[in-house]
Design a protein around this nucleic acid. Structure first.
Length: 576
DNA sequence: GCCGTTTTCGGCCCGACTGTTTTCAGTCG
């Protein structure tokens, strides 16, 4: 079982207990355990193998009861307590609670009164007018449920970061022009630069909240107003994205921005810490008793709690507060630290521009080097190069190096890892390249062991420098393939192979937890754009965002090295 | 169910909005 499977089970346990109106703190305990398991870099199974129940209990949020449940799951592959509840509340029934505005109480009532146990049944009951007359159900509530079902159906997938950014950018500009609005800034998962965005959160600073809210709900893109109060409002935009707005005064800005930026786990942890220190944190400031002691600046919250400033990308409740207590926060990588791009395509395979055009574009960004890494013969769809074509391309790189001054163009290839683990070119060809990237482009459905073996055998090839887009996921369209990442990282560590964090906004793997793990193991990460046009070099910002969420520093990143050191690193594996 | 240089028992983050409730429950972030 994967960590995500354990987390899923415990999260579901929380939902079961919520439906049973169990102790709310018990529910939170399960949620917390699930979240902590999810952010663990080591597989739970291996934690258990090494240290049994005592080792499990060292994980925050896991105590006696949950540790025993994990043991039961590992030993028997099932959990009695879970099975029992699963029968009572099947998955389809649980889905009812993902309809906006419909929570556990209503779901239970619907089940009791009308035997409704799925969104589909709820929809047909609503259409038939069966909801009328149920407890707490009148015109407006029924109408809201109907709209909620529509929203639920339309909005199952989350928005990619760049898409959400565009929406937020336009909206913020609109809000800033409203009367009395001093400031409008994106917060929430957008400010944390999460790879996908559920809702857009925006904080507005104004001393006239009513008129700010008034202007907000009149934004031309607004399709539906979900809530409209004195200081907050929620709307759904025409393309289904929800936007939550919060209006606060200038003096609350820091506290409000903090409250609206961290995820739930981070905020709970901060407030818990404040409580332990005899203080209280809310969006209105930080308080000692009744006395407000800060909140104008975001830094107030951290400094008064004895913490170093935590960058927004780290506010995920994954150990950042503990690290901030002890001065152990990373100094996060920044765009300006990047000195080159090691994964670049040209019109020799499936790119759009020539080698020279790509090199000139990279030079404009201030890069010292790029590597030309077109596809290899097996990637027919991507017009992969034959050996002969590759050799011709190498000569073109030599010629380009002479013509384009001020940037070093490296010879490379993005070489397919065949299903049997062999590389798409023989070693005799690979050794003529400066940079060899290995990647899986076919047969994604292999089982975990086969895929792990396949990738490890590529890593073990002494000419392979970088494992590209290591999980193969495409956000919104393809799940990651089955892979034992722990083994892959160990192989990379043992052989001196680097791992790519692909900056394309639909890829963005390596995921954050593995970035952290790789960095801990001393594996260098290459943050590459995989550019197929000159425009795509700009995608580096999404890669940097993902890297920062993965706690990476400049020293962890391969292409933050100057060219001479980079070349030395690349040659190390070959024993030169 | 978890957790502890105040506690091994008694706590557990904080606040806003809606709709139906005549004083508040349910839901959300």
């Amino acid at each position: 079982m994967e960590n995500s499977d354990f987390a899923g089970i415990f999260r579901r346990m929380g939902e079961f207990l919520e439906l049973r109106e169990d102790n709310p703190f018990k529910i939170r305990a399960y949620e917390k355990a699930a979240a902590n398991i999810e952010s663990l870099s080591e597989p739970l199974e291996s934690v258990y193998r090494k240290g049994g129940i005592p080792a499990l209990r060292e994980i925050p949020g896991i105590g006696e009861a949950i540790a025993e449940k994990i043991e039961e799951l590992i030993k028997t592959g099932r959990l009695k307590a879970y099975r029992k509840l699963e029968k009572e509340f099947p998955k389809k029934f649980i889905e009812l609670m993902s309809v906006p505005g419909l929570g556990p109480k209503t779901a239970i009532m619907l089940k009791k009164k009308l035997k409704i146990d799925s969104v589909a049944k709820l929809e047909s009951a609503a259409k038939k007018g069966l909801l009328k007359g149920l407890p707490g159900m009148k015109e407006k509530k029924i109408e809201n449920i109907k709209k909620g079902i529509e929203q639920h159906k339309r909005h199952i997938s989350r928005a990619l970061l760049p898409v959400a950014f565009e929406h937020a950018f336009a909206l913020v500009n609109y809000l800033k022009k409203l009367k009395g609005v001093e400031e409008a800034v994106p917060a929430g998962s957008l400010r944390r630069l999460q790879e996908t965005i559920g809702d857009i959160d925006i904080l507005v600073i104004s001393e006239e909240p009513e008129s700010a809210i008034e202007g907000f709900v009149k934004y031309p893109e607004v399709d539906r107003v979900l809530a409209r109060g004195e200081t907050k409002s929620s709307v759904v935009l025409a393309d289904g994205i929800q936007v939550d707005l919060r209006v606060l005064g200038r003096s609350d800005f820091g506290a409000a921005l903090h409250y609206f930026t961290g995820n739930k786990a981070h905020n709970i942890e901060i407030r818990q810490l404040a409580q332990d220190k005899g203080m209280k944190v809310s969006e209105y400031g930080i308080f000692k008793g009744k006395k407000r002691v800060g909140g104008e600046k975001e830094e107030d919250i951290f400094s008064l709690l004895g913490l170093d400033y935590i960058e927004p990308e780290l506010r995920q409740g994954q150990g950042e507060i503990e690290a901030a207590k002890t001065g152990k926060l990373p100094k996060l990588i920044e765009i300006k630290d990047i000195r080159g791009d090691l994964h670049v395509h040209t019109n020799a395979s499936d790119g759009s521009n020539t080698i020279e055009e790509m090199a000139e574009a990279a030079k404009k960004l201030g890069y010292e080097y790029i590597a030309i890494t077109d596809h290899t013969v097996s990637s027919r769809i991507a017009s992969g190069l034959t050996e002969k074509e590759l050799l011709a391309n190498i000569k073109k790189v030599d010629a380009a190096n002479k013509r384009v001054k001020g940037i070093k163009i490296l010879k490379g290839a993005e070489v397919d890892i065949r299903p049997d683990g062999k590389m798409d070119y023989p070693d005799g060809i690979l050794k003529q390249l400066d940079v060899v990237i290995a990647a899986v482009h076919s047969k994604f459905t292999m089982n975990k062991k086969e895929m792990t073996d396949r990738i490890i055998s590529a890593i073990e090839n002494k000419y392979v420098n970088i494992l590209a887009h290591p999980t193969g996921r495409l956000l919104g369209s393809r799940d990651p393939y089955e892979l034992d990442m722990e083994k892959v990282l160990k192989a990379a560590q043992g052989t001196g192979t680097f791992i790519e964090l692909n900056a394309h906004p639909v890829r963005l793997d390596l995921f954050d937890i593995y970035c952290r793990e790789a960095a801990k193991m001393g594996i260098l990460i290459a943050i590459n754009t995989d550019s197929h046009t000159t425009m795509q070099f700009g995608n580096i910002k999404w890669g940097i965002a993902a890297a920062r969420r993965g706690w990476l520093e400049k020293k962890n990143v391969l292409n933050a090295l100057p060219v001479d050191k980079l070349l030395k690193k690349l040659r190390q594996k070959r024993g030169k």
